[in-house]
Nucleic acid binder design. Structure first.
Lengths: 208, 208
DNA sequence: GGAGTCAGTGAACAACTGTTACCACAACTG
DNA sequence: CAGTTGTGGTAACAGTTGTTCACTGACTCC
């Protein structure tokens, strides 16, 4: 079933990935709109012109990075949102998963937080698209929950968006304290958990 | 009481403001980390070297822009948070005020949303500082509210931060639909209002 | 095994960048 | 009114940028 790539195509993918990795590294300390193509190729150790074999522009590379950073996140979203247990347990698990993801993929998270409102339109749109898909998945999961009985479709989507935004806010918070002492990180975990809980309480009493 | 400035100092302030305005304009379509000092001076019609008479670097200019964009916003925060009426009325007034502010100062709002997680550290820090001050003001106002009886200090700050983040999210939403048809903007207003309301409901039942 | 494909190279281009040192001249200060 | 201050201007610097063109040579396919 699995189609083994030719040597040529494999090498191309390798270079492409090296460009993506190098760019992601450089983007830790600047925004995409100031990332130069020469900067990236220099980092990889490849001629500037080679860049064009993989991307039309740095904006194009940015869109690919969005795919890499968010595309593979859908399973996790589903895990978070469809896990069992009571409300508090699920929230704690969700916050834990977010913290873990930030710890293992800090550059990806930083990139998304930065470019979500960044200076490159096509990348902004790619991120909004993915986030809208996340919100849709969350909404589908919410619909299945008995708590959602009596909710309108609009309100379910409204809540789903609130959850998605809150997850991003939380991820960004964790990013800020990545190198901070354990105590500080515990504090952030607690704040994020309680904010989620408050939203959850609001949800429980929405139809009162 | 009012100290009239000399011709010289007045002219300097005028040039400085022109630089800030030009930069803000240019930043509608790029991030601060890619803003060149020559770009700004060219826009104003002044020699590149004149820039140094006002700012050490574009990052320095960015910090000044944060002051301009957020410094004058504290009165509005206080108006929103200490207005009278029942919960729903206050929320509707708040969302209205946010919408109005986005409509009158779109470039400022865009700048803050963009650079909050942007590539220039000093600017990020300046924004975080101001937002922390906002959260503190909101917390003070919340403390005075009878609904907050029995709340811990930590939880009040937690809620205040949630409110501040939500205001920014809402502002960013309004920014995205600034040029959209009235119907779309009404939809956004409704979503923002309901999200605020849900949070407010969660607040009412926090101590259950 | 021979022809063709194509990822990556190297050189050159015009245009741009931040920063320096020095100068002009209007506005302030005594 | 003489002398100082300081905003803004000019010219030049060494580097950088994106993009083009013609090229090499290892892999692919028939």
């Amino acid at each position: 079933m699995s189609h083994t790539l030719g040597i040529r195509q494999a090498q191309k993918l390798k270079t492409r990935q090296a460009l993506l990795d190098a760019a992601l590294g450089l983007l830790e300390e600047q925004s995409l709109s100031s990332l130069g193509l020469r900067e990236v190729t220099r980092e990889v150790g490849v001629a500037p012109t080679a860049f064009y074999r993989h991307f039309r522009s740095t904006a194009d590379l940015g869109v690919a990075l969005v795919e890499e950073a968010l595309g593979s996140l859908h399973p996790m979203i589903r895990t978070i949102v469809s896990s069992s247990g009571d409300s508090d347990q699920r929230i704690e698990r969700a916050v834990g998963l977010i913290a873990q993801h930030v710890a293992t993929h800090p550059a990806h998270v930083r990139f998304i937080a930065r470019e979500r409102h960044g200076g490159v339109q096509s990348v902004r749109e790619a991120i909004q698209d993915q986030l809208a898909r996340f919100a849709d998945e969350v909404k589908v999961a919410l619909t299945k929950d008995p708590v959602s009985a009596g909710w309108t479709d609009d309100d379910l989507l409204m809540l789903a968006n609130l959850y998605v935004d809150q997850m991003l806010m939380t991820a960004s918070l964790f990013l800020d304290v990545l190198e901070a002492p354990e105590e500080e990180r515990r504090r952030v975990t607690q704040v994020a958990t309680r904010q989620m809980r408050l939203i959850s309480i609001g949800r429980d009493h929405w139809l009162d």
